[in-house]
Design a binder for these strands. Sequence first.
DNA 1: TAAAGTACGCACCTTTTGGTACCTGTGGAG
DNA 2: CTCCACAGGTACCAAAAGGTGCGTACTTTA
Lengths: 145, 145
Amino acid sequence: MADKFVIDRIPPKSGNGKAQCLEPNVYAEACPSRAILELIADKWTLLILPALRRGPKRNGDLMRQIGGVSQKMLTQTLRELERNGLVARLDHQEIPPRVEYELTVLGRSLADAVRKLDTWAENHIPQVQTARAAFEKRKRGSRVR
Amino acid sequence: MADKFVIDRIPPKSGNGKAQCLEPNVYAEACPSRAILELIADKWTLLILPALRRGPKRNGDLMRQIGGVSQKMLTQTLRELERNGLVARLDHQEIPPRVEYELTVLGRSLADAVRKLDTWAENHIPQVQTARAAFEKRKRGSRVR
DNA sequence: TAAAGTACGCACCTTTTGGTACCTGTGGAG
DNA sequence: CTCCACAGGTACCAAAAGGTGCGTACTTTA
């Protein structure tokens, strides 16, 4: 029975109320790693980071490459990534303005892991669609008339 | 200059307006893989999937393990994961009710990749915090008085 | 007899998110 | 001379997300 409670990392055991977690653990709400995870758990972050893996890109480049992103969300997400040290903003101080965004060393290490999620999504479309169809069928079957 | 436009996967080139993407590509808004990515790009999904890697767990187990999750969000997320074939719901048809959730084969393949993001967050807390401090400092420095 | 645990569903209401439109100021193209 | 591209900032507003509290139906424990 105790086997049920075996998890990836030991939970905080917060003896005091602060729970500042000496051993980092995303499952603890107060652990800083949780905030970092929430930064990653974002649609646009998951697209922007891999998009920058091949080298620096400009605002307009990213707008064209990432379908459906608005100027507001692109800027907002890039700022957050810059703030957390994942992306560097290179302002060439020219007129007309020329700004490039590129991954930092820190950002690159994350972008590679994120790209794997993207490729997973791309490679498992049929499996997910089949599962969805089966789920709908089950739901319909269990409906009481 | 054309080098700037080299990306991970070739963009849609949508000749017609539908852009149903024969070659799966998360950067294309209409590609089914984008919807799958949006399912993954969720705070609770990124915690629940790795939490189930060690075997089936019950609702209450997950509530205790995942700090800060509400009953509503837990159930809602589990339903979505079940609907997409990543998690299986095992109702033991007992009284009092006993329900277990476990990864499907499909879910397991994703959970391993997701767990890497969690560990990344746990292992890079100091780097991110340093970057944040440096960012704030730069902002303050560039303020006009 | 009463309370607590199990696994939710539902409704209400607040917070957050994100889209749209409009503004800057300059240089180059037509 | 006019329009566009560049890289945004700002404000407003609708939509979505998500927290809280209550109800269900049954059993075990105190």
